[in-house]
Write a protein that binds this DNA or RNA. Structure first.
Length: 270
DNA sequence: TACGATGATTGTAT
DNA sequence: ATACAATCATCGTA
């Protein structure tokens, strides 16, 4: 339970994203801002045709963002689509409501003006001005609706696109390979691009996942070396065994209590 | 269910 | 552009 509360931070992020779009052009030009909102709503399939073409596009993007794991997320897709259609329906009904209210209000004002025209002269220019004022007011309200709809879509998107939600631990073999590289290059645990590609291939993960792994590993190892001492010793011993079995000589007893001694140029991590 | 481990993202400094 | 640091969101386990 309390699942909703855990999403608050993420919603704040999504909201911040939307607000930053608004803030980017805060300089009182209503048209580009409105255009952006309209474009986004159209791209997300909210304001477009009733069929959810945009939804499937976003779902495909989400699937692509998750990466090579070609899992069947049809459940989540339908969940996403359901929520998007819900947003779309709310958006359309609200928009229609505003449209109708605008029309009613203008006719009401027109009637008032017509009534007043019996007691005082009213120029057509004045009427025109009134109408345009009313329309401006209502279009600003519509813009708010579009804004909040965009926010809702952004939140929905972030919920489905955020790869942190789909996190899966790497399999044992992959972490073995990564750890082996890390501890055998402890003096300089910064694999080159080629090395990363090699590791990625061996572990069946992407290069950026390798980069993430090394980034996390470096910082967490540095954070407290004591916690990783055992692991370090284990991998150091393993590589030592491999080396001796490969060369079949060198009878020195090696139990490196300090894994840092393995490298030539220490201190690169500190 | 609480908590540590872990992969991913975000923000900042270089 | 890359690394680091902090943080998020989930997983695995006691």
């Amino acid at each position: 339970m309390c699942v909703a509360s855990r999403y608050v931070g993420e919603e704040k992020r999504a909201l911040a994203g939307v607000l930053s779009i608004r803030g980017a052009q805060d300089e009182e030009p209503p048209d580009p801002q409105l255009m952006r909102l309209d474009n986004m709503l159209l791209a997300e399939g909210v304001s477009g045709p009733e069929k959810g073409g945009g939804a499937s596009a976003v779902a495909a993007a989400a699937a692509a963002a998750v990466g090579g794991t070609g899992n069947d997320n049809s459940v989540e897709h339908s969940d996403y689509r359901a929520k998007l259609t819900q947003i779309r329906q709310i958006y359309h009904t609200e928009l229609e409501k505003y449209e109708q209210a605008c029309n009613e209000f203008t006719t009401h004002v027109m009637n008032l003006l017509r009534e007043q025209s019996r007691t005082r002269p009213i120029s057509p220019k004045e009427i025109e001005r009134m109408v345009s004022i009313i329309h401006r007011k209502f279009s600003s309200i519509q813009m708010q609706l579009k804004q909040s709809t965009c926010e809702a879509v952004m939140i929905l998107r972030s919920r489905f696109l955020d790869a942190r939600r789909k996190r899966r631990n790497f399999n044992k073999q992959a972490t073995e390979i990564l750890n082996e590289y890390f501890y055998s290059h402890l003096s300089n645990p910064y694999p080159s691009e080629e090395a990363k590609e090699e590791l990625a291939k061996k572990c069946s993960i992407t290069v950026s996942q390798v980069s993430n792994w090394f980034g996390n590993k470096r910082i967490r190892y540095k954070k407290n070396i004591g916690k990783f001492q055992e692991e370090a010793n284990m991998y150091a011993a393993r590589t030592a065994v491999n080396a001796t079995s490969a060369s079949a000589q060198g009878s020195q007893a090696n139990s490196p209590s300090t894994p840092n001694s393995a490298g030539e140029s220490p201190r690169s991590l500190y």
